[in-house]
Every structure is written in C-alpha cells, then in structure tokens.
C-alpha cells in the first residue's frame, strides 16, 4: 500500500531541511516518472513516508549562461531547454536531444533534474550531457558538492545522490574554439519515443586535427558511459581522414565489449554502428570535409 504525506517546499532551503529531518522521502518535480510509478503501484513507492514536491522552487528554474560556462537549474523543463536560443545556436545536440523527449505535454512538465536523477539507461539528455563533461551540483544542509556526471551515475536507475541531497543544477563548460556536435536517435516511432538507441558526439578541432572527441551512446549500455576507446582513437587524427563507417563499427564493438552478447545485440550492433557513422558524417560535412 502506497501511503505518504505530501509536502510542498517553496524554497531550496525548505526542501533541504525536510530532507535532513525526515526519512523515506521521495522527491517529485515534474512528475512524469513518479506518476507512472504511482499508477503502477510500484513497490518502491511503498517504502516512502513523504513525497516532497519541489516543482514550485523558483531558484532551481534558472538557465545561466556565462562566457564559458552554462548552468541549468534542475527544474528547467525540457520545453525550456528546447526553446533556449543559445543552446539551439551553440550546443544544438542538446536541443536535438530535448526535442525528442516524450511529447509536448511531457516536455512541459519533465525536468532536466528529473531526467538525470531518474537515471534511466535510455534518458535522452545523458548522452549530450556526458559528451559535454557535465557536472552535477548537489546541495544539502551540510554544503555543496560537485560530481562529474559520470561519477554521479551508479547504475541503471541509480545515482550517488545522498538522501539529504537535492540536485541543484547541471553545469558544463562551453567548448572553446572550433567545435561540432551531433545527436542521433532511433526509437520505435516518431512521437512519445523512448530511445532504443541514441548517440551524442562532440569534437573540438584545431587546424583540422581532432583535439578532443566525445562519443557517448545512450540506451546502448546498462547506464550511459563515454566510449573512451573511440575518443582515444579519434583524438590526434585529421577529421578529414576519419572513416565514419569504420569508426561506427569500432563503436559497436566497444558496446558489445561492455554488454557482452545479449538478445538485442544482433539489432543494436549494426544500429549503433550506423548511428555513430551518421553522427561522424554529419560533423565532417558541417566542418566542410564531406568529400
């Protein structure tokens, strides 16, 4: 039986006090995951005594863009991410990922913090956020701590957030110089689409040479992981000389190294290979090396 007390926090300080004082608290923001769990009468919700609603906390709804750094408040909705002009112009793979989440109704409620804290293996925002080497800022009454998003994810649907902590924001540095990014996704249908596979790619180029590469597939591994092997292979090479198809195959092999052969491998191996190939081809074309 699910039975809890509903508490609404109007400020982050109020929320942190409740998290510090009470046990068995579940946080609800946009509710697009929690309400599904409620409807399914999920066992996990039977353990909670309090549902803490943070959806009205204004200080967590800010998008701050400085010269070299971006801060996205945990309560920024996918719709706001999608409509942000700076992201559309400068970090378009984040916009592309936000655009493919759920539907207009879901994007109007679902939040960046919710997507990150729910830690679904198929969470669309993880791939670009990992490629951007994002950090999460966790706040408790004891203070703040920053964690790399890769260190924040513990496993499928699990993170290293403590019971007394609130995700305040996600932060990342705006890539400097000449850089390109791309997001690819395959789902079973166009709208209300939960990723079967997605992939984010970000690269920084200097004089035609790949200085930095981050290739991050989503829904390919139990939880989103950067494919360092591919990044290492790409870095130092001329972008013009990269073979997207070959790199795609390497990415697919790297996935199978992590997951082993699974029932879905015959589908996911060629599909991921193609996604990586497309992302690299798009980036090459954008950079003017489409020949």
């Amino acid at each position: 039986m699910i039975d809890y007390q509903f508490i609404k926090a109007n400020t982050a300080a109020e929320a942190l006090k409740i998290l510090a004082d009470k046990n068995n608290v579940k946080i609800i923001a946009g509710g697009t995951d929690v309400l599904v769990e409620l409807h399914k009468e999920s066992r996990d919700l039977e353990m909670i005594d309090y549902l803490l609603d943070i959806s009205g906390i204004e200080e967590l709804k800010e998008i701050k863009i400085a010269e070299d750094k971006v801060e996205i408040g945990s309560l920024v909705t996918h719709s706001r991410l999608l409509k942000n002009k700076f992201f559309a112009e400068n970090i378009p793979f984040l916009t592309a990922a936000a655009k493919d989440i759920g539907s207009t109704q879901i994007r109007n409620r679902g939040t960046v913090g919710g997507n990150v804290c729910n830690a679904s293996p198929a969470a669309d925002l993880f791939a670009p956020l990992l490629a951007l080497e994002s950090e999460v800022v966790l706040r408790s009454q004891k203070g703040k701590r920053n964690l790399k998003i890769t260190d924040f994810i513990k496993g499928p649907y699990k993170t290293h957030i403590r019971n007394d902590e609130l995700l305040e924001k996600v932060v990342f540095k705006i890539p400097a110089g000449e850089y390109y990014c791309n997001f690819q996704k395959i789902g079973r249908r166009k709208a209300l689409n939960i990723s079967r596979l997605c992939l984010a790619f970000l690269t920084v180029i200097e004089d035609g040479v790949i200085k930095k590469a981050h290739l991050v597939p989503g829904a390919a591994t139990p939880y989103p992981t950067p494919f360092k092997k591919i990044d290492d292979y790409l870095e130092g090479k001329l972008l013009a000389e990269i073979d997207p198809a070959e790199t795609g195959k390497m990415a697919a092999d790297a996935m199978v190294e992590i997951t082993g052969e699974r029932w879905s491998t015959p589908y996911k191996r060629p599909a991921l290979s193609k996604l990586a190939e497309r992302a690299l081809s798009c980036v090459k074309e954008e950079a003017g090396y489409d020949g």
Binding site: K8, S79, I106, N108, R109
Partner: peptide, 15 residues
Amino acid sequence: DKAVNSCMVLTAQVD
C-alpha cells in the same frame, strides 16, 4: 498556459 497530461500531475502540486 502549458498543455500537460492531467494524469501526470498531482492536484496538490498545482495549488
């Protein structure tokens, strides 16, 4: 002003 699924919102949240 935003379209939302009313099955995905707790009434207590939209006071």
